[in-house]
Amino acid sequence: MDEAAFLERISARLGRSIPEDRPPRNVQGAPDFWRQRSSGAQELILRFQAELEKLGGQVERFEDRSAMLAFLKSLLKDLDPTRIGVWGGNFMDEYQLEEVLSPYEVVTWGNQGVEAFQAAEVSISGCAFAIADTGTMVMMSSETHGRSVAVLPTVHIVILRQEQIHGTMGEVLESLSQMGRSLPASVHFISGASRSSDIENDQTIGIHGPARIVAFIL
């Protein structure tokens, strides 16, 4: 069916022609009380940590980069991966990951793609936003920030700066709305590890995506 006929059928059922102007609205988005909530930075960090931990995620907070790198080093030693996948671009440099990752085979998104990342046990990325209410981290796709970085490997480590943590999803959605045409093809909200309860209601982790999520807060 062609578009005009399809839409005309709807208009006809609604008893008018298709409106040319945006329909006026009394109600849009979340209730006022919800939008007016505000929290201090420290409170947001604590809430984010508590929520993500409730979802089985691991949260580590660091005073500075060197503490983070030291922790990463020992974590990777425990995990003992063969291959680690990381965001491309200047991500490695930004956090000076090179030395810590040097014992492992490292693949970077952009130089490599899906096939290389399919065989990576661990991935390390940043994120665009985090949401305290729901323990959520938001990924936005780009040439160097592949979507698969967050879903193919078994363990996903996310490095985020505390100023990226927002209170509600609404704040993040407003940012997306303002991006207009520059909105990336994929915006991916992650709250904890991949899970399913489809086998006799028995919850199991890591069904398709990562089984372990670790958030590093700087």
């Binding site: 796709s141 040439e143 698969s148 093809a185 909200f189 992650i190």
Partner: peptide
């Protein structure tokens, strides 16, 4: 749940330079 583990937003096919995501997107309404 407060939120499902994943909330995924797809806006169009992969952009120039992207290495994953569908190259063509068809929405059937």
């Amino acid at each position: 749940q407060k939120l499902t583990t994943y909330m995924s937003m797809i806006t169009g096919p992969r952009r120039q330079g992207d290495r994953d995501g569908a190259e063509s997107l068809h929405i059937i309404i």
